[in-house]
Design a protein around this nucleic acid. Structure first.
Ligand SMILES: NC(=O)c1ccc[n+]([C@@H]2O[C@H](COP(=O)([O-])OP(=O)(O)OC[C@H]3O[C@@H](n4cnc5c(N)ncnc54)[C@H](O)[C@@H]3O)[C@@H](O)[C@H]2O)c1
Ligand SMILES: NC(=O)c1ccc[n+]([C@@H]2O[C@H](COP(=O)([O-])OP(=O)(O)OC[C@H]3O[C@@H](n4cnc5c(N)ncnc54)[C@H](O)[C@@H]3O)[C@@H](O)[C@H]2O)c1
Lengths: 207, 207
DNA sequence: ATAAGTTTGTGAATGATTTCACAAGCGTCA
DNA sequence: TGACGCTTGTGAAATCATTCACAAACTTAT
């Protein structure tokens, strides 16, 4: 299949969110124009995005909400649930571990690790914090799909490499500073300082 | 000035981070090739990015680290400090409020608000949680530059609009689901569920 | 002072993404 | 059935972003 642009994937996520809303409201069809309005884009963009994967609409009518929802879930790989472990039970790791919103979207946080003996064994919501020394052993039996990296920058690259070697295929990285994805591992980085700097730029260079 | 692409701004942030490292190490000059290696891009890209703002390099030699650092700080608006308030002292708001990394980059969290009477008055690190009812009054005297939105989705749009009316020029939004920036307000959204979905897509559609 | 070796800054070329524009398909209604 | 109104799917055009490639400018060595 053709390579799909990152911007397209982002928009697919957005459409999916709207479709879930619309579906809850009981509406059964939706047009590219409506989806575009909601998502702040154009109807041509919506149709182009969807056309990369097939043609799901009916001319004159629009898209069946239920069908499009199903197709998008399939495309995004959201027909299954994903097993997530969090590495680093600090401030941000704890917030993420206790966030219910992820499970609603199909991502189950099933384990939390730390290296600090003082934290290991403590409960974080339903989960007991485990010793990160057991990461590889657990990964083998528990088949984590995604690791969330929420540890200090020092040592983060080594931990990312360990995650890769443990056979976990994806990393959601919160560590600031440059981190290279291990081979064969999909990685996305959330860098909040960078977002703040983008706002600083916008405030400084606005007309 | 010409409109600057979002991707360019992101790279400038990255270059800035490296320059700070390099500067700490005491190195005095750096070439576009070196910056490119560190940032995972090409030297032509680095030069193109910088050339949008002027020409800061010396042919045959490269860029003066100190000068380029200064220029980039100026371009990004980081020669001053920014006053940040956090709205929503929940799990994620609390993690952000106590994160020291922001101050290191020039962003001072100077106030935290909540609407829950049980939380108002509590301390969060150095800061006492304030009643969000006072947001407008405080904004007038305390001149917040950026508001971090970390409240539940329900009511978030109204709060964003209040932030806009209070004269705060930028929002860093953590609320999932569609939020429209109020007029004249710069907004960046960090949507972690969307990042996870992008990983789901990558894991599902990898070759 | 000259030659050799680097590295910048930038037009031109290429590649990627978005927008345009419209034929073709579908539902509705008379 | 046929005409009408709406909306899709998609080539073509336009816009935007990246990469190429090289003259010009600088440093260093001799
Ligand atoms: N807190 C925030 O709001 C925030 C915001 C943006 C980025 N970040 C980034 O997230 C990361 C964590 O930040 P934080 O504020 O949660 O820090 P923190 O100090 O509160 O927590 C870090 C945790 O990681 C654990 N740890 C350290 N090394 C480990 C290892 N090798 N394996 C497992 N656990 C390990 C520590 O014991 C600690 O519990 C940092 O890299 C930071 O830059 C945090
Ligand atoms: N916790 C996470 O890891 C995480 C991850 C991604 C996104 N988010 C998003 O961040 C937001 C907050 O999440 P959380 O987990 O911190 O929730 P939370 O319930 O822990 O905290 C929300 C806080 O906001 C306060 N609040 C509610 N309405 C308010 C208002 N109008 N003004 C001021 N304060 C108000 C509540 O009293 C509460 O203290 C949510 O929108 C969530 O989707 C959270």
């Amino acid at each position: 299949m053709k390579r799909i642009a990152e911007s397209t994937v982002r928009r697919l996520s957005i459409y999916l969110g709207f479709l879930e809303d619309i579906n809850r409201r009981g509406t059964t069809t939706v047009s590219s124009e409506q989806l575009a309005k909601l998502g702040g884009t154009t109807s041509a963009q919506v149709r182009k995005d969807l056309s990369l994967f097939g043609s799901f609409g009916k001319r004159g009518l629009g898209y069946s909400v239920a069908e499009l929802l199903g197709r998008l879930r399939q495309i995004m790989g959201l027909e299954r649930r994903w097993r997530v472990c969090i590495i680093g039970a600090g401030k941000i790791g704890a917030a993420l571990a206790q966030f219910e919103g992820f499970a609603q979207r199909g991502f189950d946080v099933v384990a939390v690790y730390d290296s600090n003996p003082a934290r290991i064994g403590e409960m974080l919501g339903e989960l007991r914090i485990r010793d990160v020394a057991f990461l590889e052993r657990d990964a083998e039996t528990e088949k984590f799909d995604i690791a969330v990296l929420a540890i200090p920058p020092r040592g983060a690259q080594k931990m990312a490499d360990r995650v890769g070697r443990a056979g976990i295929g994806a990393i959601l990285n919160f560590v600031a500073g440059q981190l290279t994805a291990p081979p064969k591992v999909a990685m996305r980085t959330v860098d909040m300082a960078m977002e703040l700097e983008a706002l600083s730029f916008a405030l400084t260079n606005r007309d």
